[in-house]
Design a protein around this nucleic acid. Sequence first.
DNA 1: CAGATTAATATGTATATACTTAATATTATT
DNA 2: AATAATATTAAGTATATACATATTAATCTG
Lengths: 233, 233
Amino acid sequence: MTKPQFRSWQSVQEEVLRRIHAREWTPGALIPNEADLAEEFGCSRATVNRALRTLAETGLLDRRRKAGTRVAAQPVAKATLDISVIRMDVEARGQRYDHQLTDRATTRPPMAVSAAMQAPTTSDMLFLKALHLADGQPYALEDRWVNLEVVPEASEERFDAISSNEWLLRHAPYTHGDIAFSAANATEGEAQALGCAPGAALFIIDRLTWNRSKAVTKVRIVFAPGHQMRTVL
Amino acid sequence: MTKPQFRSWQSVQEEVLRRIHAREWTPGALIPNEADLAEEFGCSRATVNRALRTLAETGLLDRRRKAGTRVAAQPVAKATLDISVIRMDVEARGQRYDHQLTDRATTRPPMAVSAAMQAPTTSDMLFLKALHLADGQPYALEDRWVNLEVVPEASEERFDAISSNEWLLRHAPYTHGDIAFSAANATEGEAQALGCAPGAALFIIDRLTWNRSKAVTKVRIVFAPGHQMRTVL
DNA sequence: CAGATTAATATGTATATACTTAATATTATT
DNA sequence: AATAATATTAAGTATATACATATTAATCTG
């Protein structure tokens, strides 16, 4: 019998996936070690390693040194969402993008904001409020606090040619951040700005980004009713 | 001058990140090729490759053969959400999990469902409705259609010891799927089941999973008001 | 000059080898 | 028998080398 040849890490990965889906390897089961698989597949261990490591990153395999590799008992699906600039989202839908800066102030943020950003309550921040439009229709509302200690140049920017959303990505890189998705009923003000009924269910993104130990910006994006965020598994 | 040594791909990655954050390499700029970086860092090209490849996966770098590697002009943040079994979510919050199967039928799905699942409108599917509880309080509502052609065993299962949510993950592996997040106002029925006011904004997950070319299950999970889904960037 | 051919280049990948590290199993010691 | 020292195991990583592939640049050709 001729040994099947799997010459690329992708083909090894496909074969491993096939075995999992065909239930040759069931959830929780220990699979052969890299060296054995390499021999069986007629490739090097590095190739098997790459295939298995990539599958482990998707949550389908659990790997531990010495303990070996198992098919995940509870495959935790990892959905990767691309959080892009709003302009790109709108343009990807084939619509014309536009934005309006509706409010701007340099003032002390509320306690909740300075606390979340771990900034002194005494220092001013730049507050921005903008409306994003798709084909002239309200698409999303943006409420943003910018830490001027980290991004002093923001004071000089007018945010008319380029939205604050986009400007910050380009001028204020972040090392890490957290993001939360939720739903809320439209307030009177939101309803007016978005042209919907008060109380309408709105999809919301809250994001807080950091550069090293300093908070860069805190933003809340409120989408018009019906907004969906989709991705593949 | 002694050449700094970067002996692991992680340390190379950190140095690359440092240069990007310090704006030594600005968005859109072409960075040196792998061979040059390897020499500069005193490591092999494979090590640099792994560091850069991983950064490209996060969207921070754009890489193309022959064209080289650039710092992404529009860094598309990739937020990875762990979509786990609801039981695990609840238990991770330190709450007691429970579930009730509130409805069950083997019937023809509505057109919209059979169309989305690319199944004949004439064949029956298993319909399940369940309430997930956290510390006895309503946590989420689940509406599910199961393709019995793909998972006939589901007919025999009572879904009392184990939720349909969890049972399917274990017994009906999928090759791919899509998922959508949105917000909607609570219907009368949802409000009653979740113990909230009608019209309350609810966070919703719609998921459709496939095994090869066959739809496995279509599920809609409606969370109680206030639900957040969070992750890091 | 347009279009096809060819060369050059940077990333992408495969391989053998060697060593590291975390976790477990075994053995020795008290 | 409990504890500590040691060996073993399997994944994790680094390296040199070689070749593949996509893409661009340069060159040739009609």
